[in-house]
Design a protein around this nucleic acid. Structure first.
Lengths: 223, 223
DNA sequence: GAAAAAATGGACCGGTTGGTACACCACCGG
DNA sequence: CCGGTGGTGTACCAACCGGTCCATTTTTTC
């Protein structure tokens, strides 16, 4: 990505960048991400994307082959960026209950701060994940969350603080659903119930609720 | 809707319906619902909708003014159909915990059996609920669920089986999020974690999980 | 039963949109 | 310094698509 090629090095020396392919690609991707997230796949306009870019429409077709290719690249990049969450998740060799709490908070905060990503996933679901199936890399990536979660649950079970009859993916589904829905459906939910889900007060309360819900769900019972 | 007009009565007598405006409208709405749910607002094609209808494109503009008008009508109808859930919810003068359980099951089953509705709501969220704000009728309608939920929580609190510090809308959010997400994100979630969320086995398990999560969340604690 | 109104069909249009042809320029290796 | 390759801008097109015009037929009204 940022590996300094001869070309780039020369350009930096001159302080006047006449051409910068890598930057062009990134620029297009950044603009396209917004456009696709706001307007959807069919709603986004290639001309509009091109115009907001410092390059031209020609470049989009040069680098991404077409609208669908660009969309797929945007989707892939968006999913790859969750790597940040994965890295932080490595800190999870703390006590099981604290680790679980931290994992929920990370998920909650990530979704909250990445509404673009949420929108893109929604768009992709409307298209029945047709483009996602081409991206095999993503599968492996996201399953690392499951591995982390499995490890936490396992440790908790051994220590006797977590029950043993819950599937890690199901737990992930519960957490994801709440965090994702809050953002993905903020407009309709907000309109119907007159609530601004981006209100910090609500955000804090909701974070507490999902944490409490999961904690209680995981508790061991005699019944 | 089904109020027998002279027109309709005459048509039924003849048993040969040469023209049936009401049926035309309903036919268009049914087809348009599918098209908008599958392709989104921008993705859906008026010609395609018209072709699948037994009438013509001309009729769409005659009855619904335009593409946006048709979309709005589709959205309104979809939301109105939840009335069915509302009616069943009137049965909720049972014991609080049983009522809560029933309410969750109804929500779960409704979302499960109405993927079209889920898609439409997702589409509308991508468009920032721009069209929903025009439909003031929907607000009143959906808030009846909250009234029901409030009543259940209140009764439970009086009987000492539910805690008192939870907002009904927040509880509704938790339930909705899980039920909705399971359907709305079935494609991406399914692709990434190799799960068919429509598998009856999973469905049963997930229903149990959301019920258990809410039940435990509502329990009274000394802490 | 005629006139008014509602409903319908089909051809057509003009702007939009994804995509491309062509010419050209910058950069690097030799 | 020169030739090839990779990168870029402009102008353009053909198909598509939302929307409308005009004519016609059925239904209702009186």
């Amino acid at each position: 990505m940022s590996k300094p090629t001869k070309k780039k090095a020369a350009a930096e020396q001159l302080a006047v960048v006449t051409r910068d392919p890598e930057a062009s690609v990134q620029d297009i991707l950044a603009v396209a991400t917004e456009e696709f997230a706001i307007n959807g796949l069919s709603g986004a306009r290639v001309d509009q994307i091109a115009e907001r870019t410092r390059t031209s429409k020609r470049m989009i077709y040069y680098y991404f082959k077409g609208k669908e290719g660009l969309y797929q690249a945007v989707l892939e990049k968006a999913y790859m960026d969750i790597r940040a969450l994965e890295e932080k998740a490595k800190l999870l060799d703390m006590e099981p209950r604290a680790a679980m709490r931290k994992l929920i908070e990370l998920t909650f905060d990530y979704d909250e701060t990445h509404p673009m990503f949420i929108s893109l996933v929604s768009v992709e679901n409307i298209h029945q994940a047709r483009h996602l199936t081409n991206l095999s890399s993503i599968k492996e990536l996201n399953q690392s969350v499951i591995r982390t979660l499995t490890s936490i649950l396992e440790r908790g079970r051994k220590e006797g603080v977590f029950r043993a009859d819950l599937d890690p993916v199901d737990v992930h589904l519960l957490i994801s659903a709440f965090c994702f829905f809050r953002v993905s459906n903020r407009h309709t939910f907000g309109a119907i119930f007159d609530r601004d889900l981006s209100d910090p007060k609500l955000r804090k309360r909701h974070k507490k609720i999902i944490i409490e819900a999961v904690e209680r769900l995981l508790e061991v019972r005699k019944s």
